[in-house]
Amino acid sequence: METSKRQFLKGCGALIAGISVYTVTKSPLAENANTDASQTEVKYAMVHDENACIGCNACVEACRETNHVPDGVTRVKIERTGPFGNYPNQSYRFNRVSCQHCEAAPCVRVCPTGAAYIDKDTGIVAVNSDRCVGCQYCIAACPYQVRFINPETRTADKCDFCQQTQLSKGLQPACVLACPTQALTFGNLKDPDSALVKLLKTKPTYRAKVDLGTRPKLFHIQTIDGEVML
C-alpha cells in the first residue's frame, strides 16, 4: 500500500512539474522572443516625464531630421489631450507615443523573415530593412500601433532609439538631446548608477498595456493635476 501511495504521489508531482514547464515555455508572446538580451550588461529604456513635457514637438522634428524620416509618417508622436479644468486654470496633458521596445515583442514573433528582431547587445527592438518584405504582419501585431511602412524604402519602420545614428556615435537619442525641458531620460536599466535607474527609483511610473505581457521599456511619469483621480 505504501509503495502504491509513493508511486501515485511521484506521478502527480511529475504531472504538476510538466504543466508548470509547459505554461512557461508556451507563453504566446515570449515563445519566439529573443532572450539573449537578458544575458548582456545593457538593456536600454526611456522615461517620458509628462509633467515636464510642453508638447513642443522638438523631439519629433529632431527624430525626423536625424533619422531621415519622410513627411507623412513619424517615429515619435506627442499626443495632447485636454484642456482640463476651468479657465484660466486650464492644463493639457502630453503623452509620448513611440516604440515600446518590448522584451516580449509581438512584432518579432510574427515576422516571417526575421527582419524584426531584438538586438542581443542592447535589448532594442530593431528592423533589418534588407530582410523586410513589407508584409505588414508586424504592424498588425503591434498593440501600440507605432509601426509603419516607410514610403521611400517600402519597409517597416519605427523608433529604434537612434540605434544606427546617434547611439553608433556614442550619443544620446536625438529626441533626448533636443528636448528643451529634459522631459526625456534615456539609459541602461542594468546600470544602477544611470540617471534612468535613479529616476525610476524615485518617481512613480507607469507603462502602457502591461497586462498583455509585452514588458515594454518606455516608462511614463504621469501628469499630476493636483486632483485625485478616481
Score class of each variant (00 low, 15 high):
Thr81Ile: 12
Pro83His: 04
Pro83Met: 01
Phe84His: 13
Gly85Val: 10
Asn86Lys: 14
Asn86Ser: 14
Tyr87Thr: 12
Tyr87Lys: 08
Tyr87Asp: 08
Ser91Arg: 11
Tyr92Met: 06
Tyr92Cys: 04
Arg93Cys: 09
Arg93Asp: 11
Arg93Tyr: 06
Arg93Met: 12
Arg93Gln: 14
Arg93Val: 14
Phe94Ser: 06
Phe94Ile: 04
Asn95Gly: 06
Asn95Ser: 15
Arg96Val: 11
Arg96Ile: 10
Val97Gly: 01
Ser98Lys: 09
Cys99Val: 02
Gln100His: 06
His101Arg: 03
His101Val: 06
His101Pro: 05
His101Leu: 05
His101Ile: 04
His101Tyr: 08
Cys102Gly: 08
Glu103Cys: 12
Ala105Asp: 11
Ala105Thr: 10
Pro106Ala: 11
Val108Gln: 15
Val110Leu: 01
Ala115Arg: 12
Tyr117Ser: 08
Ile118Asp: 07
Asp119Asn: 15
Asp119Glu: 15
Lys120Arg: 15
Asp121Glu: 15
Thr122Met: 05
Gly123Phe: 10
Gly123Pro: 09
Gly123Gln: 07
Gly123Trp: 10
Gly123Cys: 08
Ala126Asp: 13
Ala126Met: 12
Val127Gln: 11
Val127Pro: 06
Asn128Ser: 11
Asn128Leu: 06
Asp130Arg: 13
Asp130Gly: 08
Asp130Ile: 08
Cys132Leu: 12
Val133Tyr: 10
Val133Pro: 04
Gly134Pro: 10
Gln136Leu: 08
Cys138Asn: 05
Ala140Lys: 09
Ala141Thr: 01
Ala141Tyr: 00
Ala141Lys: 03
Cys142Thr: 02
Cys142Arg: 03
Cys142Tyr: 03
Tyr144Ile: 02
Tyr144Met: 03
Gln145Phe: 09
Gln145Thr: 13
Phe148Met: 08
Ile149Ser: 04
Ile149His: 06
Asn150Ser: 08
Asn150Tyr: 07
Glu152Ser: 09
Thr153Phe: 03
Thr153Arg: 06
Arg154His: 15
Arg154Pro: 00
Thr155Tyr: 01
Thr155Ser: 09
Thr155Trp: 02
Ala156Val: 15
Ala156Tyr: 02
Ala156Ile: 10
Lys158Gln: 15
Cys159Trp: 01
Cys159Gly: 01
Phe161Thr: 05
Cys162Pro: 05
Leu167Gln: 14
Leu167Met: 09
Ser168Ala: 15
Ala174Pro: 02
Ala174Asp: 05
Cys175Ser: 11
Cys175Gln: 09
Cys175Thr: 08
Cys175Glu: 05
Cys175Asn: 09
Val176Gln: 13
Leu177Asn: 11
Cys179Phe: 00
Cys179Pro: 01
Thr181Phe: 01
Thr181Ile: 00
Thr181Tyr: 04
Thr181Pro: 01
Thr181Lys: 07
Ala183Met: 03
Ala183Trp: 02
Ala183Cys: 07
Thr185Lys: 04
Phe186Ile: 05
Phe186His: 13
Phe186Cys: 07
Gly187Ser: 07
Asn188Lys: 09
Leu189Asn: 02
Lys190Arg: 13
Asp191Gln: 03
Asp193Trp: 03
Ser194Gln: 03
Ser194Lys: 06
Ser194Gly: 02
Ser194Tyr: 00
Ser194Thr: 03
Ala195Arg: 11
Leu196Ile: 03
